[in-house]
Design a protein around this nucleic acid. Structure first.
Length: 553
RNA sequence: GCUCGUGUGGUGUAGUUCGGUCCAUCAUGACGGACUCUCGAUCCGUCGACCCGGGUUCAAAUCCCGGCACGAGCACCA
């Protein structure tokens, strides 16, 4: 029936066996039986019409008329080995700048898992590099705020690695004392050559005492940068050369912006993160798959300490079409050069920029949760995020008229008479927001120059008009809507004030000037400009231009 | 090169653990239509995918083998 008399015996058999596992051993016998039945049904459908089959079915087996479709699983996949109430996750950004749209994935997923299992999220600042990715002191607070904005609640535990240095150094000492770590004085290049050949470096077999002596020399500053590094001993025959005797701590004499020059030796991510995850009792680590080797290195360290490694999960690389590649350090340099006005410059993919433009945290969060957690490298489009955002904000954005490149016309109602003194237009078309905007009608109106060429138009909520050839007069043909002519937005001249709309276009900011409806404008509000799109009111000076920041269509 | 990972419509995702109820889910997009006094919203419809080749099986997106493509790591960055 479903296939118009062209049913396939094979798929019928498939369904049957799927439901009746007990019949599977007799599949071969069944096949001929099913073929005969399907042929009969097809014949009935062909000869007597599909309706006959429907009737026959309704009489014998009515529930078969309903076809069930598969449904999409919603929400995040279950966390492996998770116990309700005992899940601890972590989100560990480098505070060398504020959060970007990519970080939003980490915040959304970690906080959502914590919510699902009544667990906790540790917000940890991995700020143990004083030179290459120097921490930005302001960024700590920014990130805490941005985390809370996106997650809907603050992080449960907040930690700064730089404040916990004594602990890491102590564990490094334990490692040396335990003989599963050593101080290596080889140059990076020499070590790499030995490592790639699965050869031990000369420093490896030295005694614990010799290592501890070098260790204190590293810490008191008498060994200079690059002259020594602490390594974790591993099997040198590991198939992956990257894991062999990996570096755990190195010397950095550059002062740390938060703790100054108190330390000469700083742990690398793999060491610091491993120790801290254990101390915080982290049960699940969600990280980028570029950190898979990190998991393997850290697991080797956990084996030395006799600890159990958390459950790791990974996501793939994310690219945003509209932004291409970006890095926090790259943005930091560009801002310093004056290419951008700041971290919240509308062209930047930072959370502060998106927030300023009017993206809703809930929409961002829903977007990332909808993508879920997969290891595929993906390329997403802002369009999709914008669509999530529209559905969240539409019902709470009032409408306003913004006439770009305004053209002044006299409104001539002499043909029909009965011109109203004012019009009342809903603040929101479905009444999601109550109330109206009152427009006092004068002798002149403004329309967009681009609309003037059409000739026969409907001024939204007012009248069907004809624009004369000189584009100077709009003659009212009727107040009520008479036909399907295009509807345009407009404005009585005295109801508006000058404004300009900034719209990020790739690396440029394009500016459109016009006249904005001057009714209850509120700084910071997100409004929908009719026929233009959503925008945020950035500033309303006492006199001068109102600044509008474009959000999306 | 070595090591690891990933391949489902244009994009993103569900289904893959344990083959069958999958002529493959949902969202976004594109196209068409309805409705609405916005190019917004809503509603309806259409389009469009299991990387390739073998194998196992009554039956493969799912299992096996072999390719190919893409990505990442191989930093004294995170």
């Amino acid at each position: 029936m479903e296939y118009d008399g062209a049913g396939q015996a094979g798929s019928v058999l498939g369904r049957l066996l799927g439901e009746r596992a007990d019949l599977r051993p007799r599949a071969r016998d069944l096949k001929s039986l099913v073929e005969a039945e399907v042929a009969a049904a097809n014949e009935l459908a062909t000869n007597s019409g599909v309706e006959a089959v429907r009737e026959a079915l309704a009489a014998t087996n009515p529930e078969a008329l309903e076809r069930q479709k598969q449904v999409k699983r919603t929400g995040l996949k279950e966390l492996p080995n998770a116990t309700e109430g005992e899940v601890i996750l972590r989100f560990a950004p480098n505070p060398n700048g504020p959060l970007t749209i990519g970080h939003a994935r980490g915040v959304s997923i970690n906080s959502e898992y914590a919510r699902m299992y009544s667990g906790k999220v540790v917000l940890r600042f991995d700020d143990t590099d004083t030179r290459v990715k120097t921490p930005l002191p302001e960024a700590y607070d920014w990130i805490e705020t941005e985390y809370e904005w996106l997650a809907g609640r603050p992080a449960d535990i907040i930690i700064r690695a730089s404040e916990r240095m004594p602990i890491y150094l102590e564990y490094a000492t334990k490692m040396l004392e335990g003989g599963f770590g050593y101080v290596c004085r080889c140059s990076a290049a020499d070590f790499k050559a030995l490592r790639d050949a699965s050869q031990a470096c000369p420093c490896r077999p030295r005694s614990v005492e010799a290592n501890l002596a070098d260790w204190s020399a590293m810490n008191d500053g008498s060994i200079s940068e690059g002259e020594a590094v602490v390594r974790v001993k591993t099997d040198l025959d590991l198939p992956n050369p990257a894991l062999r005797d990996w570096p755990a701590l190195r010397i950095q004499h550059t002062p740390h912006p938060m703790v100054g020059d108190a330390y000469k030796v700083w742990p690398l991510l793999d060491f610091q993160s491993a120790i801290e995850d254990h101390l915080q009792g982290v049960t699940h680590i969600v990280r980028g798959k570029d950190l898979m080797d990190s998991t393997r290195k850290q697991t080797l360290l956990y084996e030395h300490f006799g600890w159990t490694y958390p459950e790791p999960l990974y996501w793939g690389r994310v690219k945003v079409h509209e932004f291409g590649g970006f890095s926090t350090s790259g943005m930091r340099a560009a801002i310093a050069d004056g290419d951008y006005s700041g971290w919240d410059d509308a062209r930047l993919p930072t959370l502060s920029a998106l927030r300023r433009r009017g993206f809703d945290s809930q929409a961002l969060r829903e977007f990332w949760l909808d993508l879920g957690l997969t290891q595929k490298d993906i390329s997403i489009s802002m369009q999709t995020i914008e669509s999530f955002n529209s559905s969240v904000i539409d019902s709470r954005c009032e409408r306003r008229s913004f006439v770009r490149e305004p053209l002044s016309l006299s409104l001539d109602a002499s043909g029909v008479g009965g011109a109203p003194e004012s019009v009342a237009i809903a603040r929101h078309p479905h009444g999601d927001i109550a109330g109206v905007r009152e427009w006092v009608l004068g002798p002149e109106i403004l329309i967009e120059t681009a609309d003037a060429g059409i000739g026969s138009l409907r001024l939204k909520d007012l009248a069907d008009v004809n624009i004369d050839a000189g584009a100077a007069r709009a003659s009212v043909e009727a107040w009520d809507r008479m036909d399907k002519r295009p509807i345009i937005h407009w404005l009585p001249t005295e109801m508006g004030r000058p404004a300009r709309l900034s719209r990020p276009e790739g690396d440029e900011i394009c500016i459109e000037s016009g006249i904005l409806e001057d009714v209850d404008l509120e700084e910071g509000a997100i409004i929908q400009l009719e026929r233009v799109g959503f925008a945020r009111i950035d500033s309303i000076p006492t006199d001068g231009l109102v600044e509008l920041l474009y959000l999306h269509g």
